[in-house]
Amino acid sequence: MNPDNVKIKVENLRKDFGHLKVLQGVSTEICEGEVVVVIGPSGSGKSTFLRCLNQLEKVTEGRVIIDGQDITDPETDINKLRERVGMVFQHFNLFNNMNVLRNLMLAPVDLKQCGKEEAKERALAMLERVGLQDKVNAFPHQLSGGQKQRVAIARSLCMKPDIMLFDEPTSALDPEMVGEVLDVMKELAHEGMTMVVVTHEMGFAREVANRVLFMDEGCILEEGTPEEVFGNPQNPRTQDFLNKVL
């Protein structure tokens, strides 16, 4: 790993919800263009970890540094930072009161990244990229789960982010729709996007990840290349988890 192009640096991250200690000191570094997949049993803190990376969760202790900027510092303009860090949710969270085009155009226009014309061009280009150019005028409730998730990815991409966070993007999908979403994500990975993906899709992790983190009880217990983690897990809890899911 080349320390020069560290994109995200996480230092001793802790997060409590009341008495519940969800993250108990997580540290890692994610490089530019790296695809990191986070796996682990439910309740292990994977999603919370991911949500700390764009401050959807305020951290209790520790630091998250993106491009040298400490985003846990209250002085940091978090909205400005979030423009560069896209996020895709398990339940898509498309804006139900807008059609697909307006979903994609809202943030770029509202945050004055570009004019309406350019935003529309961008939106159409992104929709084409995820294969949904014919759904421009559809409302979210008219789309299938897989389509919704692809629109959600396109919506994030419209902000031209350089990091993408995926929070179990295929967990709420019917099995036959998982593939179409993973394909879009694979393409994104091949284009060199820095990605952090929380998922239960071990196939995706094996194929696309540069590095796999195994989390349990708020700690990273094991990390390494997919071959190392899946082929020869060292920690007994990793072994136990992989035995159950593979």
Partner: peptide, 12 residues
């Protein structure tokens, strides 16, 4: 999730 999605895009 609607609020979270909007915030994650950078909207205040």
């Amino acid at each position: 999730g609607q609020m979270e999605a909007a915030r994650s895009l950078g909207l205040p």
